[in-house]
Structures are given as C-alpha cells and as structure tokens.
Design a protein around this nucleic acid. Structure first.
Lengths: 349, 349
DNA sequence: CTGTTAGCGCGTTCAA
DNA sequence: TTGAACGCGCTAACAG
C-alpha cells in the first residue's frame, strides 16, 4: 500500500470529489469551509484512513509537528548504564509524549554534551535535520546562553525546564527554594536543630535555590547555619557517602540530613549504618528526588517530588500553542511540588 | 539563520562551486565521486555547518532516517505512572538511540493499545505520518499477526524483540527457556527440591518458553513438577503476592520460588515475611528481570538480566543495514543473558 | 564522473 | 467559498 502508493491527499480529494487544497483546508481547520464540505471531506479521510505525511507538511508548510528535547548526554547515559533507577527521562516521556500526541505532535529526544565545545554544533545539527516546532531544554541546558542564543538565532521557540530565570522562552519550574524550605521546616518541626545539607552540583541553578531555601528555614527559627553542616556535592551517590563520612567525624554530628538528590540521599543512607548512625533513630534523611529507588530502600526515604511529567507536559502545551498562534512567549510557569513523608524521618533522640 | 534562510544543499553547492546534485552524491556516499571533489564538497559542508533536512530527504528520496518503536500503551503508562522503576523503555532508548545516531537515524517511540480494535488504525496512522525506514516491535506486539501483516502490506521491514518465532522480520531475542533452566538449575544445585514457579502473562510467548525451561530443569533431575507449585501470574506485583499466599498454605510449601518478572518477585518477597518465611533463610527467590528495584530491595534479588539495550541496538543495526542494502531479512538473532547472584538465594535449611 | 530534469506530498500564495 | 499555480529541500532517474 505504501511502497508504491500510500494514501495521499489527492486520493482523498478524488474520493470526495474536490480539489486537494480543499482537503488540506479541512484538515488544517482552515477558514472558509462549509460544514457540508467539511463532512464530505472527513468522510473520505476516514474511509481511506488518510493521515498526512509529516515530512511533506514540514516541507511545504511551516510546521514540522515535532518537539525536540535536549538532555545532557553524560548523566543520561550514566543513568541508563548504571541502571540506578532514575526515571527522569521516563517522566519526561510520560508528560511530553502524551501531550504531544493530543495535538498530532511527536516528541524526540536528543542527547548533547553540555561540556563539549561541540555543544553548539550538536544542537545546530539536530535543529537543522529536524526543524522542530519547539525545543525543550532541561538542566543544565535550561540556563545555557550558548543554547538559548542559538535557538533564538534559528527563530525557534523553547521552554526551559527547571529554570526560574526570566528571559526568553517559557520557564517551567517548581519552587526549589520553597521545597527546600518546606523540607527543612518539617525537620525543624520534628525537633531537629542540627541539620546538615548536602549540596547539588554547583553548575545547576537549582542548587543555589535549594541552598537558599535551606538557609531561610534555619534562620527563620533564629538558628545559625554551621558551615561544617554544609557539605559539597554533585548529585552522585559517592558524594553522599563522602558527605556522611565527613559529618560523622564532627564533634557534634547532625541529627538530620537534607540531600539535594536521591542518589546522594542513598549514599548518606548506606554510609550511615557502618558509621554507627541508625536511620531514622539517630539520623533522619530527606531526599530531594522521589525516584523509584528511594521508595524501595530500607527505610524508604521521605522525599520532595518534582513534577517532571507535569513540567514536560506544560512545556509541550505552551510550545504547541505558541507555534499555532505564532507567538514568541517568554512567560514563567510555577508548578507545585509534593512532599512525601516516609520512614527515614523521625524526631531526634 | 533558519526562519528565512536555513543552510540548504544549494548553499553548499554554491560555496563549493558545483551543482547541488554533486553535493547530494557526496553526502550520500554515492558512486562516482573523485576524492578531490569529495573533499572540496565536504569542506564547504563543514564550513557552512550544513546538515540535510530529514523531511526533504524523506520526501525526495526513499529513506526517512527514522526507526519507529511500538510499545504497548497500557503497561508502559502504568509503569510510568506508578514509578515502580521498570526501566525497559530507558534500556530501549539506551540501545536504540545510540545505534541510530551512529547512522544519522533517530528513534521514535509510539504507544499503541494492543487490546483495542483500534490497534491497526493506530499503527497505520503512525506509519502513514512518519514513513519510518524500519519498525521495532516489543512484546506482545512482536508476535501479533495483525501488526506484522500490516507492516508487510506497507512494505516495511521490522524487528521483533523478544520473539524466537520464525517468520518475517528480524527476530532478536534471548533464550528465555535456557534462562529459566539456568535459574532453576542454580536452585537445584543449592540443594532445593521444592521449587515453585510464578508464571508470566499467558499472552506473552516468552511465558511458555520460560515454563518449558523450568520444567526441563526439574525433570532433568528426575524430579516431578508439583502442580500446586505452578502459580498463575500476569507479571504484576499483586500476582506475586497472591502466589506467595497460595504457596504458604500448602502442606509442603516450596523452599524456593522463581518468578517470571521483577514485580512478581517483589510481590513474593514482600508477602513472604508476614507469612512467616524469611528470605533467603526459609525461602529463596529468583527474579526474571534485573530492574533497578530488585537491586535495592532487602535482600537484593538474584536475577536473570535481559539484554534489552543490546537487543534494541541489534534491531536498529539490522534494520538500518537492511534498509541500506534493500534487503527484506527474516533472520534470527540470539543474544546472551546474564545471571546475577545476589542475597535472596541460599541453600534450603 | 558530473550536471539536468522531474517529481515526492503537502501548505501557501494567489485568482476565480 | 473553492481551485490552480508554485515551491519547500532533497533524491532519483536520466543525459552528457
């Protein structure tokens, strides 16, 4: 049926007895179509099972019906390779694919090396090949001017996930500062006063936001941040282990730890027992990601849940609508987070 | 640069001072190109950063540079929604995206409802819109004649993941029977004689294969399969729990259980303790999937690991090569599995 | 070995 | 309100 003779708009036109431009107009909800004509054409469309070719639409028209998402290659591949269970990509697919499908769009993933000098070449190549109608940026790309300016030059609209910064593009984010504040306050309300924080990768803007939230909560209670309770980190399991090792050596170890990623939280958890800290007896732990593994760990971890699927869905919706209306759009969209209490938190002894 | 004036093949032709078909020939490794000409054109390509448009290539030529993967909608969405940590899709992306990228291809995911009467409509719509160069089928689609025949009619080549059946398309699979046999023999070698098996969903061909492997291993030792040790299942957590409940009631409960999926294995594990079975003391458990959660569970589960990434990579490679060479191809490709011993298995008491 | 010509299936001008 | 021209960027026949 296809190799020689897929169903094209012309077949539909012949079936309906109209010119093929009329069919095009009906399909694209064009103006000036009588209901009768519309129905006649749609009958032919359904009868033949006609579906327009994306490639032809893109070439002839101005839309490609494609949304392109750029993820950072290294951490993405590491996550897949190590099978640690991070489901960031799945949640993006979950939110993005479904929203795209609602509008006849598709979402495509592309991995680019944010630390390579080839970053811009890679992004440009993907854009040139696919001509997407919109682009979704994830951290750390969301705030990378090399990418945003490249997209701007190419006349592409884009969404920046996890970025609260003003600027071009749709910023779709959750309030990381408020989340860190809420988590910290939860620990304070349990009675903890010696609370440590394992920081995120300094390259990510959210790391600063979260630290601010942590700080604010502590200080709002008239407490001081102890410098030795602020442990550097980079989101990795090993960073969590190192942080726990350092904290255990202190004269006054903390009674609670807030970690800026699930892997670091698990690193803290697994390092705690050998160092003599039972969880949550002697140490409470809160994770900043609610990935599958933190729910299967023993004890399961209290965690902040980022609305990754909802953010991606929102981003896709914004991009598609903007494309339809021909807008540029640089609005900001705050999405709510969840806080899930599990078994890793308890009052201090 | 793009909205009005992306770099096209003509710009490259002008830069190199040749006709644009010569450029096309160079790009596509066409025959009859002198090395000098090739270099001249490539210099222009690199200088301008030219990347051909996929849409135009597909429309003009016979290739779309797209591989389409069809997954079953319901279980895929359930997995994403429940966040149980199944990383089947991630592993497919891992294997497929990278292989595709090597050849300038992209991989696209599409969810279709295998139980809907609209299945064929959905598949046909995706094909008509995208005109992929090849299709990757996953269970239970891999053996669904409605799909394979539809693809055949459309002149599309396809790979069937997880199917050992002969037939059209590339069968890329692991030996589920041998895997079940190996796992069972491992338990037998530990000294177990009372081994139960929680079956997979009857709709999946692999369920039968695995059962055969289990059977074969038991009988090869001169033992009998006890009917009450064969528990029905459908790959879900709840099925595992039900199976464990049923097994616990027997006069002679098993000392080991082989479960045909990670979720069922976890269901068995979590149901075991309340029923008075410690793992691995009184009950050994082997899982048939090595997803992230079975490594984080307590105890971590001994498991068979399916080469999902490798299968997808192989499928993409086969499809792309077949497309290039214009072959149809219906070969079969067996990939090795791994068996990972962890903490859920021990000799019987 | 290279250039010329003709479409691919659509959307987008236009004119009718 | 509808139809006819044109071209998108490229590959696939050809011809030279």
């Amino acid at each position: 049926m296809q190799k020689k003779g897929a169903i094209t708009i012309k077949h539909v036109a012949a079936e309906a007895g109209v010119s093929f431009q009329t069919v095009s107009r009906v399909i694209n909800d064009g103006p000036n179509v009588t209901p009768a004509m519309r129905e006649r054409v749609m009958n032919a469309v359904n009868k033949l099972g006609y579906v327009p070719s994306l490639a032809a639409r893109r070439l002839g028209g101005s839309r490609s019906y494609l949304i392109l998402a750029f993820n950072d290659r290294r951490p993405t591949l590491d996550g897949w390779e190590s099978r640690r269970g991070n489901d960031w990509v799945d949640q993006m697919l979950y939110g993005g694919m479904i929203k795209c499908a609602e509008h006849g769009y598709r979402m495509l993933f592309e991995l680019v090396d944010s630390h390579s000098d080839e970053l811009e070449t890679q992004v440009q190549a993907a854009i040139s090949a696919l001509h997407p109608d919109g682009v979704i940026l994830t951290p750390p790309h969301s705030d990378d001017p090399r990418i945003t300016e490249l997209l701007h030059r190419n006349g592409l609209i884009f969404a920046r996930l996890g970025s609260r910064r003003e600027g071009e593009g749709f910023a779709v984010y959750m309030d990381d500062e408020a989340a860190a504040r809420a988590a910290t306050k939860y620990l304070l309300d349990l009675g903890h006063t010696r609370i440590a924080y394992v920081e995120g990768h300094p390259e990510y803007a959210i790391s600063g936001d979260r630290l601010r939230g942590f700080r604010g909560a502590i200080e709002s209670r008239g407490l001081q941040i102890r410098p030795e309770y602020l442990q550097p980190g980079d989101f990795t399991y090993e960073a969590g282990q190192r942080a726990m090792a350092a904290l255990a050596k202190l004269d006054q170890p903390p009674t609670a730890v807030l970690a800026s990623s699930d892997e670091m939280a698990l690193g803290v958890l697994h390092a705690a027992a050998p160092l003599g800290f039972s969880v949550p007896g002697e140490l409470s732990i809160v994770s900043f990601d609610d990935t599958p593994t933190v729910r299967m760990s023993v004890p399961s971890l209290t965690a902040i849940r980022q609305p990754i699927a909802a953010m991606t869905s929102k981003a896709a919706e914004l991009l598609i609508q903007a494309k339809i209306k021909g807008l540029e759009g640089n609005s900001r969209h705050l999405l709510p987070f969840d806080f899930i209490v599990r078994d890793s938190t308890a009052p201090p002894r």
